[in-house]
Every structure is written in structure tokens, then in C-alpha cells.
């Protein structure tokens, strides 16, 4: 099993993307606004359970998942499995052909460490540099959803009255007092559609 297959599998069951985990936590717990820590704890518990005897995984996959949770997640992602999964989502395609059994070794290599460092945001300081490098390589690690969720006190102008952000994140931005659009508003954003169900 290589990294590409792992990602495909996680994606297929809705266990890769943070927003899918979050939706699952909301559904399971009834907490409409779980913190990132809540989501991480639930994801970790679920995955650990699956890594320890599951009809969902074959023994080799169980071992891989266990290694991932026990070695990669604590060491490189401060125990945040959702960050580790976000890393896989972001960089997995670049290392898709690597065997998952080699993932730990790879992530400890200079290339892997540089990749993690970049993911963790330590090299995204080139703000203001207008270059292809910046556009392509800088802080694109977070999913759009995550970026939007992390906004503090968002205020918006536009032709949707804030309904796009509200539909994606559930957060209604403030509108400036004199907010106005120069253009006629296209159709309003629709109610939020449910992300794919996580798994049975």
C-alpha cells in the first residue's frame, strides 16, 4: 500500500478532510461548534480503535495506521491527527508512490522534515514577495475551510451579504455600516449542503 492509496482510501470514507471529521463530530456529539481539539480527539480515538483490530483494515493496514498514529503524529504534528491528515492531503500527492511503511523514515529525512516545516508554516514568511514561488509554495497547507474558521471577528463586503462565509463555516461576518456593492447581487448563496457522511 502506498501513500496515494492510503489517501484515496481515507478520502473515500471521509476520514481525510478536517471538515468531514468535524461534521461527523457534530452529528455524533450534538455539539454544533466543536473545537479543533474536540475534533482531533474524536478522530484520534476512532482511528486508534480501527488500528487495533478492525474489519475495516487488513493486518498490514492496521500496522501502518498504528505506526502513523504512534510515531508520525506525536513526533511531527504535536499529537494532532487532523494536522497530520491535512499534511497528507496537502503533500500526499507529491509522495504518492512511497510505500506507507516507509513514510516514517521519509518524514524523518531532510526532505520530509523540510516538507513538514513548510506545512507548519515556518517558511511562509516571504509575505510581500510577488513571485511564483510565493504563490505556489507558501502557506497553502491549510484547507480553505480551516483558514475561514480561524478568522477572528471577520467583516465582509460583497454581493452576498456575508452568506457565502456563513454557508461554508456557519459564521456570519459583520457587515460594515455602509457596505454596498457596485454590482447587482447574483443569486444568494444557498443553504449549506452536508459534506459526505464520514462512515458507517
Amino acid at each position: 500500500m502506498n501513500v496515494g492509496e492510503l489517501i484515496e482510501r481515507l478520502n473515500r470514507i471521509g476520514a481525510l478532510r478536517y471538515e468531514d471529521w468535524r461534521a461527523w463530530v457534530i452529528e455524533e456529539s450534538g455539539n454544533s461548534n466543536p473545537t479543533r481539539e474536540d475534533v482531533n480527539a474524536a478522530a484520534l480515538a476512532w482511528l486508534k480503535d480501527k488500528a487495533d483490530g478492525s474489519i475495516w483494515l487488513d493486518p498490514e493496514e492496521e500496522q501502518m495506521l498504528g505506526e502513523f498514529l504512534e510515531n508520525v503524529v506525536p513526533k511531527h504534528f504535536d499529537g494532532s491527527v487532523v494536522d497530520a491528515l491535512a499534511f497528507l492531503e496537502r503533500y500526499g500527492p507529491e509522495i504518492a508512490s512511497k510505500d506507507v511503511a516507509d513514510l516514517k523514515t521519509y518524514l524523518n529525512s531532510p526532505t520530509g522534515l523540510a516538507m513538514i516545516e513548510k506545512f507548519n508554516g515556518h517558511t511562509g514568511e516571504q509575505i510581500g514577495e510577488m513571485s511564483h514561488f510565493f504563490q505556489q509554495e507558501s502557506n497553502q497547507d491549510l484547507s480553505g475551510y480551516q483558514v475561514l474558521r480561524e478568522l477572528e471577528g471577520p467583516e465582509s463586503v460583497g454581493n452576498t451579504s456575508g452568506s457565502l462565509l456563513a454557508a461554508v463555516t456557519g459564521i456570519m461576518p459583520q457587515q460594515p455600516d455602509t457596505a454596498a456593492s457596485a454590482a447587482p447581487a447574483p443569486e444568494a448563496a444557498h443553504a449549506q449542503s452536508a459534506p459526505p457522511a464520514l462512515m458507517a
Binding site: P154, L165, V168, S181
Partner: peptide, 20 residues
Amino acid sequence: LAQTHELELIVDRRNRAVLL
């Protein structure tokens, strides 16, 4: 762009800007 797309230009307290 506002005539062809739904747009929301967002800034937050920390001056982070996003265009949805």
C-alpha cells in the same frame, strides 16, 4: 468580477484578508 461571480471580501481583526 462582482458582475460574474458571487464575492465576499473578508478582513479580520488581525488584518487577514480573504476573497471568497
